[in-house]
Amino acid sequence: MPNYNKPKGQAKVIREIIPTDSGSQENRYFFLTLLGVVLFAIILLWTTVHKKNKPIRLPNQLINLATQLSIASDEIAMLQEAGLLSQELTLSELHENQIEPFISEVMIAASTNCFVVIKQPIILRLIKLPELNWQVQWRSIDNENSHTHDDEQPKHYADFCQADSFWLATAYTEN
């Protein structure tokens, strides 16, 4: 401890020796951190790209239902062209014409020319889209739509007839 009571003239010089450092350790830490950041970015990028390329598939247990809906899309278009079905379809018309899966599944008329079937956690829809005619699409019922259940009021089903990018095609072949 320095002696502050000493007269000024007798002050002792304290010499602190600071060792010279090349900074190699700091450099090592810096480059390791940098490498870590780059590696993390590469992994993140790879995962994102890989996820994008990987087709999101309809669960196997719903394949036959999707096939029946896809057949229905062609048959409805054909019968409408022949004038045997009205342009604004009703469930009873589809029942009367024995179109599957309308006679074996609980299909819901969600909106005009839009029919949905819910198989938790998946929802499938058969919808007439402008220019694309009848299409079968599916999506998972995620958290944002978790309010939707089989016993829900029909007014909410109309939300499933909106056009948005969450809906996926049921066929995956590239041809």
Partner: peptide, 21 residues
Amino acid sequence: KDVPLLGHGDKYNSHTFVSVD
């Protein structure tokens, strides 16, 4: 082209012709 396919990973089950639908 329009058949929803059964499969695991990148492989599809090609026996679609055995099924009626």
